[in-house]
Design a protein around this nucleic acid. Structure first.
Lengths: 322, 322
DNA sequence: CTGAAAGCGCTAACAC
DNA sequence: GTGTTAGCGCTTTCAG
């Protein structure tokens, strides 16, 4: 179906483009009769403005690029969903692309998005640091990056970071306050270390429980396969670096009749949806999704000259497993 | 940062736009020296073509709208992720928007997407039928809808449907073949009925198990709260209309020490990721995600004149719960 | 009140 | 080999 244009509408009505435009944008100073005529014609021909043309002319856009490692990862998903709703409320729409940290793939995406989006929200797994050459690459494009969760300030764009320590500290503190004597931490994400230490440090030495560390890859399978070992240690509480691992552990516990939290309290990190579905439901540390997205939106709307750099705290969510 | 344009590059080099364009598009017939000069200038000024302008001129686009009820729903998520990868491989990117079936919200989205995307993939929950007035609305926009899973043919666009019966029939047949005597089906989705009946009908009357029906809302909570009742019925197998419900049941079973599948076999529908995480892992019926998305891609690439109407079968995935 | 016209940044047919 | 030019569909300034 051929889309009708302003020009064509002008021809059909015998009026000028300017007048047609006035009517369709509901501006004043048009003779009522001519207005009616144009409106009628527009209706008959299903006139729909071409946003690409409008945006080009106005030098703006209503799309926001979202780059992430893997949207299927639940945390990204949660963030994306929340962000999408907020964007849409302001007439913006997310365009999504994958970014694994490779320069080649990024080049392609940014090329395709140039002139169509103005901002690109970059959310990667923590630990996947943006390489300086990638920043350099961004600088070449007319797209302003909003780096999310890079754990440091990247001067070429806006940076919104997440303080993982707060939620973890509260989680561990709760365990300590409730008298746990042997806490095991499973995983090897550096980002989980600080909160753990803070919780121990603020506890008087004589009340500090024993702390055991066990490395782990972060996957469900890994959590499941480490479960036997963790139980052997005789820990009465375990903090997993990821909900996935914690869920793997709970899976094993359910299979082997290990009582949680009676025999061992379990806390994860991420607040994935699965944590609410299992029995017992998983205590965890949640990302500051809403706060983060509000900040993203304000950047997109206000387009601040100066780079914005903010940090948002995580929070402990207690459920049944602890 | 001001983006440099072809025009400006032409001024700077003292050559014409045409020549600059030739060089930048790597076309022949340009004097090597001039080529070098332009290339140098382009590099220095970070020339990046404006896709909005290019697409406008070429009357095409590299964005595909995706409308769905709720991307956070895992099934949508799985489909979206797979589709995104396929699209990106061909230089297309998904623009996502929410669509709850309301005409007002749709109007806004379609308006913003007109001229920017050419196709809109519409995926709603089954049972949420597209109202004719919505189809009418689509017709007014220069966007071709690709209706997914509407369980019937909508003539104003392409329709790709899912045959739920195949997977469900296989699932139930397995239960029957393995000697289950009392099968309970829980849920009230009409779309789950056919496969169930097919399985019973192809079984000789004397071997047909008893069939009990129980309505259910489809949620995790609902599955959990119906568990007691289901067990009281003395069913030795239960098919849930959704994995969510099945997971709720398994959660209850784990809590109360009910052996699955020994005492009761459990099968869900949807193949959500959570089904692999629980213990015992959930047998389920999977959507034809890849096949569906391949079809979507081929429509987008080939832009067939005639509406495409296809149906894809679901399939049974056996895990530990049955 | 209304219209002519410039121009957003890019493409490409058509000259020379 | 290279330049001129006419748009894509829209907005908006400036004249009348």
């Amino acid at each position: 179906m051929e889309q009708i244009t302003l020009k064509r509408l002008a021809e059909l009505s015998g009026l000028s483009i300017r007048t047609v435009s006035r009517v369709l944008k509901d501006q004043a100073h048009v003779h009522p009769e001519k207005r009616e005529l144009i409106l009628k014609l527009a209706r008959e021909h299903n006139y729909i403005p071409n946003m690409a043309a409008r945006n080009l002319r106005l030098n703006r856009s209503n799309f926001v690029g979202i780059l992430c490692t893997d949207i299927s990862h639940e945390i990204f998903m949660q963030k994306l969903l929340d962000l999408e709703i907020r964007l849409e409320a302001c007439g913006y729409y997310p365009v999504v692309g994958r970014f694994t940290g490779k320069s080649a793939g990024l080049e392609k995406v940014l090329t395709q998005w140039s002139g169509i989006a103005e901002f690109v929200v970059v959310t990667m797994f923590v630990g996947t640091r943006i390489h300086p050459s990638i920043q350099e690459q961004f600088r070449r494009f007319p797209l302003t990056p909003i780096y999310v969760d890079q754990d440091r300030v990247l001067e070429d764009g806006h940076t919104l970071n997440i303080n993982r320590a707060t939620g973890i500290r509260d989680a561990i503190s709760t365990l300590i306050d409730e008298g746990k004597k042997k806490i095991l931490r499973c995983g090897n994400l550096e980002s989980r270390e600080k909160g753990l230490q803070e919780a121990f440090e603020k506890t008087p030495p004589e009340r500090r429980p024993e702390l055991i560390r066990l490395t782990g890859t972060g996957t469900f399978e890994n959590g499941r396969s480490l479960a036997g070992k963790i139980l052997e240690f005789g820990a009465d509480a375990v903090f997993f670096d990821t909900d996935r691992m914690a869920l793997g552990f709970l899976n094993y516990a359910a299979e082997h009749g290990v009582k949680v939290p009676e025999r061992i309290a379990v806390i994860g990190f991420d607040d994935e949806a699965g944590g609410k579905l299992v029995y017992p439901s998983l205590s965890t540390v949640a990302h500051p999704v809403e706060e983060l997205n509000k900040a993203i939106l304000s950047i997109i709307q206000e387009k601040p000259e100066k780079p914005v750099h903010q940090v948002f705290p995580t929070r402990f969510i207690r459920r049944m497993s602890s």
